[in-house]
Design a protein around this nucleic acid. Structure first.
Lengths: 195, 195
DNA sequence: GTCTATAGAAAGATAGAC
DNA sequence: GTCTATCTTTCTATAGAC
């Protein structure tokens, strides 16, 4: 078979990111070598540096892209006007979005400590923007007398931790459908913030 | 000042574990070198191997000890007989125990993927024993008609994720006292599993 | 019990051929 | 665009002096 030549940058670039995402999620950023990533892609280690200036930037780009997608997806989400509808929309959105991207989610939560200082600040501010979405919903519901949350920030953190936790045990084709899982988590959430 | 001589093994051993715990939690197992640990203890890298056969065992021992302590502490905990009292005891115990040991908790959750296969099995079985404690409480409450949890396993995972999440944002001397935090989390938990 | 020194492997990143 | 080859650094772990 003839050796392939010519430009592959539009194919290889995404493959590098996909391989890095998979390997970082499985083994952790620090435990994965550039050679391993290259092996997964099917190129030599040196070739990776056509697509990223260094390993740190590769991690940062993965995390930033994930957070950007998260915020953009929420903006485009159908959500009601009253706090209860918005909270339900948030719960279902959060679970669905996170279950669709287990590797990226894992990296976004686990590899914060491996970000360089400047990069960390950027990712943290994106995360804060997402947390603010939920906190605002809780605050509005509290003001409207629909929810009883003595501390909206604390309730926000508790709910996000609970919802994101789905990723730690969910397996494709498991006992419960995704819709059923969303249903149960929504039920717990609704009751937890009730009067 | 005279150079100290003689045995320090009863001091240095625990110092090695404390240093490893701190550094693994801050930077991750894979990102921490034996030289860094030695530097934190105040010895040379080679001296560490008097206290652990290798880096992997050092991680494993930290995690196993943490899980053993967790299970032992729960066994000695005051807990009522009815499901509601037991659930409250569990919530307060879990938050208190975990806030007392932020580094160990972080390691126990983040470094599972860096355990060798055999070691992973041991830690996972200890974790399962702890999860079973909560699942059993939920099951008993459901049977007794005190709780309304359609799926006890799922509710158990949701609650543990929510409770452990306290560690991600709690800072000593923060806005809320630990007792107040336990109070709020117990309130959310109680409502989430209510009828 | 701890040190210095080092073996041996592997890491991130770069240079230059093709 | 990718390869091979390599520089330089750093790693885990061990050996032997004190």
């Amino acid at each position: 078979m003839a050796r392939k030549t010519g430009s592959h940058s539009q194919i290889t670039g995404p493959k590098v990111r996909a391989a890095a995402s998979k390997l970082f999620a499985r083994h952790g950023f620090a435990a994965v070598s550039m050679r391993q990533i290259a092996g997964e892609v099917g190129v030599q280690a040196g070739a990776l540096y056509l697509y990223t200036p260094d390993k740190q930037t590769l991690l940062f780009d993965l995390m930033r892209e994930h957070m950007d997608e998260l915020l953009a997806a929420w903006d485009q989400q159908d959500k009601g006007v009253d706090p209860l509808s918005q909270l339900e929309a948030f719960v279902r959105f959060h679970i669905g979005f996170h279950l669709d991207r287990p590797d990226e989610v894992f990296i976004a939560y686990m590899e914060l400590r491996n970000l360089a200082q400047d990069n960390f600040i950027v990712i943290e501010s994106l995360r804060k923007r997402y947390e603010d979405v939920l906190e605002r919903i809780l605050h509005q519901g509290q003001q409207a007398g629909v929810f009883t949350v003595p501390d909206t920030k604390l309730a926000m953190m508790a709910l996000i931790a609970m919802l994101t936790g789905v990723n730690t045990w969910y397996r494709e084709g498991g006992r419960l459908s995704r819709d059923k899982i969303e249903e149960i988590y929504w039920d717990m959430t609704r009751k937890a913030v009730a009067g």
